[in-house]
């Protein structure tokens, strides 16, 4: 009976001589995995154009209706995105977002991506609405080539989009 108590005491004592597993945040941060679902970012193509074409599939896929997309027609002289449409307004309500990654899975151009940042505290509710300026990556950080289906340079323009969201 006492022997069992001593065995337990010895088990606990062994931990005294081991290195604790604590990661001393914030000086050291535990690295996150590649697929980690953190803060969103709107990506760009390699030539600097925005990947987002304003299709609102992310808004449709979001289980908690956290995304607002107001699409607009691209100015053909100075297009924001390849193709006809771009997102004039793109907002994500971080309080509603559950970080499920459905928007990332739904996006046909891999525009909206959940990156690795998780330190997202704010002090008031207004700061929880992340606007397009906050989400868009800088122009130098684009990647990838524009797929041929979006590079329709010699089509006549289609009628204005009639979207009622």
């Amino acid at each position: 009976m006492l022997g069992e108590i001593f065995k337990g005491l010895r088990t606990t004592l062994r931990y005294l001589f081991r290195q604790p597993v604590t990661v001393e945040y914030p000086e050291i941060k535990r690295p996150v995995r590649e697929r980690f679902r953190g803060r969103h970012e709107l990506k760009r193509f390699g030539n600097g154009m925005e990947r987002c074409i304003g299709c609102s599939l992310c808004a449709a896929a979001c289980p908690s209706d956290a995304i607002l997309v107001v699409p607009a027609e691209n100015n053909l002289q100075q297009p924001n995105s390849p193709g006809e449409r771009y997102a004039a307004r793109y907002e994500i309500n971080m309080l509603r977002c559950i970080f499920c990654g459905y928007c990332e899975d739904a996006c046909p151009t891999n525009a909206i991506v959940l990156e690795h940042q998780y330190e997202l505290a704010f002090y008031d509710r207004k700061s929880s609405i992340y606007t397009k300026e906050m989400l868009l990556v800088p122009a130098e950080q684009g990647h990838g080539d524009i797929p041929p289906v979006l590079q329709q340079l010699d089509r006549r323009p289609s009628p204005p989009a009639q979207i009622d969201l």
Partner: peptide, 15 residues
């Protein structure tokens, strides 16, 4: 939980 983060991106609510 690290294994779950590896496959899905989230530690608990993986979906």
């Amino acid at each position: 939980l690290d294994i779950f983060e590896l496959v899905s991106g989230a530690r608990m609510m993986t979906s």
